[in-house]
Simulated scan of single mutants.
Amino acid sequence: MSDNVNHPSHYETGKFECIEVMMETQGVEAVAAFCVCNAFKYLYRHKNKNELEDIKKAVWYLKKFIELEEGTNDNQ
Rank of each mutant, 00 (worst) to 15 (best):
1 M>Y: 08
2 S>V: 08
2 S>K: 06
3 D>G: 00
3 D>N: 10
4 N>D: 13
6 N>R: 08
7 H>P: 00
8 P>L: 14
8 P>C: 09
8 P>T: 12
10 H>C: 02
11 Y>P: 00
12 E>Q: 06
12 E>P: 00
14 G>N: 07
14 G>V: 06
14 G>C: 11
15 K>M: 12
15 K>V: 13
16 F>V: 12
16 F>S: 11
17 E>L: 12
17 E>G: 01
19 I>L: 09
20 E>C: 15
23 M>E: 15
24 E>C: 13
24 E>K: 09
26 Q>T: 09
27 G>N: 04
27 G>L: 09
28 V>R: 15
28 V>I: 13
29 E>H: 08
29 E>R: 08
29 E>G: 03
31 V>Y: 00
31 V>E: 00
33 A>E: 07
33 A>K: 15
34 F>K: 06
34 F>G: 03
34 F>L: 07
35 C>N: 03
36 V>D: 01
36 V>M: 03
36 V>H: 01
38 N>I: 03
41 K>S: 09
41 K>I: 03
42 Y>W: 07
45 R>K: 14
46 H>P: 05
46 H>M: 14
46 H>E: 10
47 K>N: 04
49 K>V: 06
49 K>C: 00
50 N>C: 07
52 L>W: 14
52 L>M: 10
54 D>H: 08
55 I>D: 05
55 I>T: 11
56 K>M: 10
56 K>I: 00
57 K>Y: 03
57 K>V: 04
57 K>G: 01
58 A>M: 01
59 V>L: 13
60 W>N: 12
61 Y>H: 11
61 Y>M: 13
62 L>Y: 01
64 K>V: 05
65 F>Y: 12
66 I>T: 08
66 I>V: 14
67 E>P: 04
67 E>F: 01
68 L>N: 01
68 L>E: 02
69 E>P: 01
70 E>I: 01
71 G>R: 03
71 G>Q: 06
72 T>M: 07
73 N>L: 05
73 N>E: 09
74 D>M: 02
75 N>K: 10
75 N>V: 04
